[in-house]
Amino acid sequence: MAGIVGYGVHVPRYRIKVEEIAKVWNDDPESIKKGLNITEKSVPGIDEDAATIAVEAARRAVDHSGINANEIGALYVGSESHPYAVKPTSTIVSQAIRTGHKLTAADLEFACKAGTAGIQMCAGLVDSKMIKYGMAIGSDTSQGRPSDALEYTASAGGGAFIIGSDKSEQIAEILKTTSYTSDTPDFWRREGAAFPSHGGRFTGEPAYFKHITNATKQLFEMTGFKASDFNYAVFHQPNGKFPIVVSKALGFEEKQIKDGLLTPVIGNTYSGASMLGLAAVLDIAKPNEKILLTSFGSGAGSDSFAIEVKDKIDEKRGKLTKVSDIINTRKIYIDYSTYLKNRGGIKKR
């Protein structure tokens, strides 16, 4: 079946600490840090958006894979913060990585899971031999209304995965994928609205937990695998707490999820979150190890994947820019006013 030929990520250097946001809204930072299991989040620079993040991640993915970008036949960018309402981010990325023009491309939106939906679309296209390689990107500069709980988590980052069917090139094979989808009004942003709205507690049980649990159980039934068969598990991470809770309920231990849990230090990168978590695990995974990935997008749906790491992963590590190198190198801490400026939150008229 289809597999991962290469991957790359990008996270902006800017960070804002929970304490800095809490100070503005008279919240108790310790309570927020404990409740959400988060210490700081990434913030885009004033010249960064979902397209620039997607391009940086895509370029690293091409470098890592060793393929000619001209052979990419499909390019999907999942985001809920595409810079244009009409004009694709995917065409900007294709121009910036020089895919050539014999290509199908589209922008996807499914809250936080549009990136993994892109992986599924690429997998279908490469398995049916319609294309040689497909690239799926999840990239966001997510929005959180000032003083809303989301402001502590909504961050920026992205991941790009190149999918191909030639097993000799794969660093990891997608053994099986399945999805669970329902019409659930847990989180939304209307056309033209600057910030999303959400259903408070409703975002938990009937949305995140129900969809992740059902998609993962579907995958278990389809594959015969159980939680203990996986070396690593990555779940969508809107905060640092939900993935820990859902993983325990599904029978996973903390050691299986800790390497793919990045939200406590970079926040929720929305469409980038599951992709970044998977990349962080691939950075350290060994051949024959198994990875479970289950994303979640509000609205709502989950895509679940059983992935097996292949020998090629060690050979390609020399060309890899690791997630840890990107998120830990030369972080720039900013205050709340700079954060607002970078996020376009200061209206001059």
């Binding site: 620079g45 010249d47 960064e48 958006d49 620039t52 391009v55 940086e56 370029r59 910036a96």
Partner: peptide, 10 residues
Amino acid sequence: AKVKQVFRRM
């Protein structure tokens, strides 16, 4: 100092 190109909004 050594530099490399990055992709940004102008």
